[in-house]
Design a protein around this nucleic acid. Structure first.
Length: 421
RNA sequence: GUGGGUGUAGCUCAACAGGUUAGAGCACUGGGUUGUGGCCCCAGAGGCUGCCGGUUCAAGUCCGGUCACUCACCCCA
């Protein structure tokens, strides 16, 4: 029988790694809740149509990266490639607009895209996602980026930069697309094959090209800033102003392009140069038309997503795994003491003390080694002698001191010690 | 979907130009200490060398295929 293994691009997160995930999730919840966001949990699968309509029919995500399938009823479903569409669907379905207070949501969980895996990119990956509805003020654009920055700062991530840009409204975007396309066509046919294709299908994407020849050809390309209307410009200027006054560091990157169709006005991305080819660890933007497009009320929207794998890869570069140590290890010798030690361990745990033991009747030396490796501060040693005398030895592993205690009083003693530390 | 790289012990890696019984460090188990951790010493256990086929007297090594992993491209968090 051939050994089974996990699906390509879907990884196990083993106990020796899970501390990172817990730290990131805990910090995210603290920060987001503090800004008034509340958690929403949506299913991992949705009707295929939801993603096709929200993300954009002609985006690569929908065209070739969707984890889609037909269920037994013949319905076309897909595993969510991102969270925004699902959150918007839930917002509409449950008429969450009716809540006068709660218009900020966050979601944490797995997303799926059927791509070839590489560093920082997997078929099942995890995101922390935040969405705000019904607020069109540039204050919220600035606030959400400020919050994102605060979250990363609190985690101690270094070597990152917040890039911001504006796409203008759909009209501005359409105008700019045409202006840029005209420029690219006038620039000649010396582009790489990809860019020759891109300038027709998605001209903005030419800005992402890594080929030097293409980079040179676009140095003089028109900037989006020159194509947007007064209202969009005022919004962007206000966002910049608030960000500056909040002390959130950022750079304006007029060539930043994002992959989803629904963005308008403010877009942003947190990038790093320390993750190989995957430079974005999180990004988002405003999507005012989306809720209406999906059949809901005409409310504004803005949000972002953070890639947890990428974030953790960064954290691992300059931090060590958050340690976790047991408090007490019970080392028992012989059958009778072993049985008594077993009961003692359960009793300690019942009282909230993290306790561990060796169940296999190994030598004391071996048990001490284990105790040391678990990081236990205290070891309780129970041999036949102690058991007969009704005593137990308490060893402080850090201080290397040891004393006899009455077996009856040991749980109380340990409770006192654990309160003190 | 395309291109490159790599598959040997739980992990990280050796094995001259094909040549005896595939090694080392870490980790693991036992011992050195009748019942005391980290350091040290000794011993032990642990391998279908990814898989299938081919060449050869002989394959971990060469050839073909296949699978997996990995990095990159397209695209993207």
């Amino acid at each position: 029988m051939e050994a089974l293994q996990a699906v390509r691009g879907m990884n196990d997160i083993l106990p020796d790694q899970v501390g990172w995930w817990q730290k990131v999730e805990k910090t995210a919840r603290e920060v987001l809740e503090n800004f008034g966001y509340r958690e929403i949990r949506t299913p991992v699968a949705e009707k295929l149509e939801l993603f096709a309509r929200s993300i954009g029919e002609s985006t690569d995500i929908v065209e070739k990266e969707m984890y889609s399938f037909q269920d037994r009823n013949g319905d076309f479903l897909a595993l969510r490639p991102e969270a925004t569409a699902s959150v918007v669907r839930a917002y509409i379905q449950h008429n969450l607009q009716a809540d006068p207070i709660l218009q900020k949501f966050y979601a944490v969980g797995p997303m799926f895209r059927h791509e070839r895996p590489q560093k920082g990119r997997y078929r099942q990956f995890h995101q922390i996602d935040a969405e705000v509805f019904g607020i069109d003020s540039p204050m919220i654009d600035a606030e959400i980026m400020h919050m994102l920055h605060l979250f990363l700062e609190r985690l101690g991530v270094s070597g990152i930069m917040l890039n911001i840009n504006t796409l203008g409204c759909p009209e501005c975007r359409k105008t700019y697309r045409k202006v840029l396309q005209d420029y690219l066509i006038a620039a000649g046919d010396d582009f790489c094959p990809d860019c020759l294709r891109r300038r027709v299908t998605n001209p903005l994407r030419v800005f992402d090209c890594k080929v030097e020849r293409c980079k040179a050809l676009i140095t003089g390309a028109p900037a989006i800033m020159d194509s947007i209307d007064d209202e969009c410009r005022a919004h962007f200027d206000a966002v910049r102003g608030y960000l500056t006054r909040l002390g959130t560091p950022f750079v304006i990157n007029p060539r930043m392009v994002r992959g989803l169709d629904y963005y308008m006005r403010t877009t942003f991305e947190v990038v790093t140069d320390r993750l190989g080819s995957q430079n974005a660890i999180g990004g988002g933007g405003r999507y005012n038309g989306l809720v209406k497009d999906l059949g809901g009320p005409d409310v504004a929207g803005i949000g972002f997503a953070i890639g947890m794998e990428r974030l953790i890869l960064l954290l691992q570069q300059d931090q060590t795994e958050p340690a976790r140590a047991a408090q007490v290890f019970v080392a028992a010798l012989g059958e009778a003491a072993g049985a008594r030690g077993f009961l003692l361990v359960q009793e300690l745990r019942d009282r909230g003390i993290e306790a561990e033991m060796d169940y296999e009747g190994r030598s004391l030396k071996s048990q001490m080694r284990r105790a040391d490796k678990t990081g236990a501060r205290y070891v309780l040693i129970l041999g036949e002698d102690e058991l007969n005398r009704g005593e137990i030895q308490l060893r402080d592993m850090r201080e290397k001191t040891q004393k006899n205690l009455p077996l009856d009083g040991v749980v109380g003693e340990m409770l006192e010690l654990s309160e003190r530390s």
